[in-house]
Design a binder for these strands. Structure first.
Lengths: 219, 219
DNA sequence: TTGTTGATTTCGCAA
DNA sequence: TTGCGAAGTCAACAA
């Protein structure tokens, strides 16, 4: 990794055009050739960047970076304030816990959160337009398609609606009801879902994880 | 901005939990207190980060960063390889050209791209479920709702469909037809749109910008 | 290779 | 402040 702090102006031409007037910034050049330009504020997102794969060409006062589909990033350097280089080696990578797939696992193991006597038909129930997160039957034996989201927004309601439209054409399954389950459900998504007769359920990941731990201890 | 290259392990606890085993990495600490941890590969996204606003606490071999809603980022440092600091000053910011709003402006000024004799009723035509990008009337006076996208995907077709459903309930407007206009339309989005009687139009930003420049020169 | 979906998305605008 | 849609979204995964 090379790190350069320099006064520079930047131009990007690709899916859009973008320009940065001259100022002092950090230029980060990674071992894979990717480049990002950071200011001293803002979150982790750089002002400009080029993602790998790309090719870096160095000229006297200029860095030219070309992406594989023809995008160009041009960094005009008027003054180098400092520059370093370091070999970091490869990274063992990140371990995550608490993403949507975990939420889906937990809910599948605790269907009583949705209703007493429900049973799971299948996780990732396949359809022609994609898998339904959880296909269940309620205590009366009625089919229920459950869409699990971390954050419930309108897109998720549309997705579940498409599944329900399709599933209800299958006489072996119909009628199929819908449940939209998420840690957080946006008001507009809730309105749209309930307008379409889809039940909304808010999930508490920590409680479900706790319950699950308890289950594991009992058995 | 402070830059530290160090052998470190990292733990994040917030909306999810994440852990990074020990390795050499770059720790970037911005003037606003935000922190990001980069490896030597991958695009601009860091392995772990904390967005501002947040608070940084330094301990002998550890950095503790606390976010405003209680997330914590813990960096255990076993060896500092190098460390620098620099004051970059404020940044004048980025100038962008070619995003969706520009596309919408250009199309509003060149409705003949959609058909001869069309006229604009309103940009950002308000409805109860959000604004329609362009509301027009064609040469026969029939209402047309136009959804403009940079990249046309299924979500955009769903969005336009919702608008059309709503608008067609208004006897003053009905019948309302739909046009889905984008620089690039995904095949599945095109199929869905045309299946619903929505016309798809591919836009060429450079041509439209050129035409617009021409118009400006003429008047 | 293409398409789909999730993301600690981030960012910007408007109510 | 909150909500919502766009983004050079990126990135992982399946077909």
């Amino acid at each position: 990794m090379r790190l350069v702090i320099a006064r520079c102006s930047v131009d990007y031409a690709g899916r859009l055009s973008a320009h940065l007037p001259p100022a002092n910034r950090l230029i980060m050049i990674k071992a894979d050739g990717s480049v990002s330009i950071h200011s001293d504020t803002g979150s982790y997102k750089p002002l400009n960047w080029m993602s790998p794969p790309c090719r870096l060409t160095e000229q006297p006062d200029r860095l030219l970076i070309t992406g594989k589909s023809g995008e160009t990033l041009t960094i005009e350097i008027s003054e180098i304030i400092s520059a370093w280089s370091a070999d970091l080696g490869s990274d063992p990578g990140l371990v995550k816990d608490g993403v949507e797939s975990h939420l889906q696992e937990l809910l599948a193991a605790q269907l009583d959160v949705l209703g007493a006597g429900w049973r799971l038909v299948r996780r990732e129930f396949p359809t022609a337009i994609g898998p339904v997160d959880l296909m269940c039957r309620d205590s009366a034996g009625v089919s229920v398609a459950v869409e699990v989201k971390r954050r419930g927004e309108i897109d998720g309601v549309e997705q579940l609606t498409r599944y329900l439209d399709l599933l209800n054409r299958d006489p072996l399954l119909a009628p199929v009801r819908g449940v939209f389950a998420a840690q957080e459900i946006r008001p507009q998504a809730r309105v749209l879902a309930e307008d379409r007769g889809i039940r909304c359920v808010t999930l508490d990941y920590d409680t479900m994880r706790g319950t699950d731990d308890g289950m594991l201890r009992l058995f």
